[in-house]
Design a protein around this nucleic acid. Structure first.
Lengths: 105, 105
DNA sequence: CACATACGCAACCCTAGGGTTGCACATCGG
DNA sequence: CCGATGTGCAACCCTAGGGTTGCGTATGTG
């Protein structure tokens, strides 16, 4: 499942707009690209691209519903990212590292 | 302090090479740019740029020692990044979120 | 049916930035 | 003092990718 892996995750999170998209989607789960484009200063198609990238990174899942496509957050890859951070952080908080590893569902 | 904040942190972490640099530095703390460049397939100057970026993001601290400059990891900004992730994760693990926030010393 | 709405493809523009080379300067060791 | 080593600046190349517009297509609604 982690075929794409950490590289894709961090790359996806690297862009500010993409993080805003993900953030919005975290609140309005199941939103469409058009809906999100109304709340951001970019085109619908730009949002669609970002959603595609997030989808490729496994951070989001697309589900077609008739005319429109609804997206919902799938935060599993974030666990690996957190695990990496705690590692390079020198286990600066051992409890955090332990929980991050334990949080895998 | 959080003006640059999360944007800079995630941007810095977005590049694979830069993550490798940070990862190496986590093991060999206090390494110089030249040392790191010997273990990576890129130029010393490229490493130096990455270290500058990491420094700007507050993930690394440069300390001049005579002829060479030694870098050490300062993982504090990672806490904010982790906090953001847990937030967009829909508090998929409430304990993790609590600890991430609590870890800020 | 006609119109609005939502998605998708393709081509394109343009800047950011990762990486390089070439040179100059500082410092350490013999 | 001289050479080896480490850092820094500047200019440059080049690709990735964020964003756009234009158009075509499908699905919903009056």
């Amino acid at each position: 499942m982690s075929t794409t892996g950490i590289d894709a995750t961090f790359a996806a999170l690297g862009d500010p707009t993409r993080r805003r998209v993900l953030g919005l989607l975290a609140e309005r789960d199941g939103a469409t690209a058009s809906e999100l484009s109304r709340e951001l200063p970019v085109t619908r198609l730009a949002i669609a691209k970002h959603l595609a990238a997030l989808d490729a990174a496994g951070l989001v899942h697309a589900a077609r519903e008739g005319r429109d496509v609804r997206y919902r957050v799938t935060p599993a890859p974030l666990e690996d990212a957190v695990a990496w951070m705690t590692r390079v952080g020198g286990e600066w908080d051992a409890r955090l590292a332990r929980l991050a590893k334990h949080a895998a569902r």
